[in-house]
């Protein structure tokens, strides 16, 4: 009988192939713009009645406050809590194992008629930094992303280039984009294409950008 081959599966960012390209882009456009891949995190989708004791019970488990206002997020000890809807939150953790994170949150929510589902593989993260970051996103998104209307602590589910994304505002010109892995390459291609505008010398004589693929 043939010996059974075993291999350890390691998590890999869906945009791993773009890592070098984004590094070259960020190096050429610094400090106006930097694009990088976000880390892999455990994520659960929490559904629970906001009026009952569910949110308080979940806060005990995740160790931080859940956002109370629409389209806002709060920081957790090792992650984030995003308000996706009236009775829906997205909870992430860079420290927890996805299965444990789902089990712990679900146990707390189920006691109040809610539930939590592991969605770690549903979305992948991108990080945009620099003075041009907000303007770059407006090339494919209709939301008003100026700091006054989209300040630190805001988040929004919307469309970027017809792909459903969650935009998350960190402090200053630091934005996070959560997108489904199957749409991630499309979103990055659009962002990279739009970023050509921010080259110090965008004239054709200056030659192709270091990140452009032939």
């Amino acid at each position: 009988m043939a010996e059974i081959q075993t291999a350890t599966l390691t998590a890999r960012h869906p945009l791993e192939g773009y890592r070098d390209l984004l590094e070259a882009l960020s190096a050429e456009l610094a400090p106006a713009l930097a694009l990088e891949l976000g880390g892999l995190v455990a994520a659960v989708d929490l559904r629970v009645d906001p009026a009952g004791g569910g949110p308080a019970a979940v806060e005990q488990v995740v160790g931080g406050p859940l956002p109370t206002r629409p389209d806002t997020w709060t920081a957790l000890p090792a992650g984030q809590a995003l308000r996706l809807g009236p009775d829906e939150w997205l909870l992430t953790s860079a420290a927890a194992q996805p299965e444990d994170w789902e089990f712990a949150v679900d146990e707390a929510a189920a006691a109040h008629g809610g539930m939590a589902v592991d969605v770690s593989a549903q979305r992948t993260a991108l990080r945009l930094r620099g003075g041009a970051a907000r303007e770059l996103l407006t090339t494919g998104c209709a939301l008003d992303l100026r700091p006054r209307s989209f300040p630190h602590g805001r988040c929004a589910q919307t469309l970027f280039g017809q792909a459903a994304v969650v935009l998350v505002a960190h402090g200053g010109d630091d934005l996070q984009v959560l997108v489904r892995p199957s749409f991630a390459a499309h979103v990055v291609d659009r962002l990279v294409d739009a970023a050509t505008e921010y080259r110090p010398d965008p004239s054709p004589e200056s030659g192709p950008a270091s990140w452009e693929t032939p």
Partner: peptide, 17 residues
């Protein structure tokens, strides 16, 4: 394109609805 005021999210583009 006009904006539709979602009771939860506020004014958003019609395309999202």
């Amino acid at each position: 394109m006009q904006l539709i005021a979602c009771p939860w999210c506020g004014p958003r583009e019609e395309l999202e609805f």
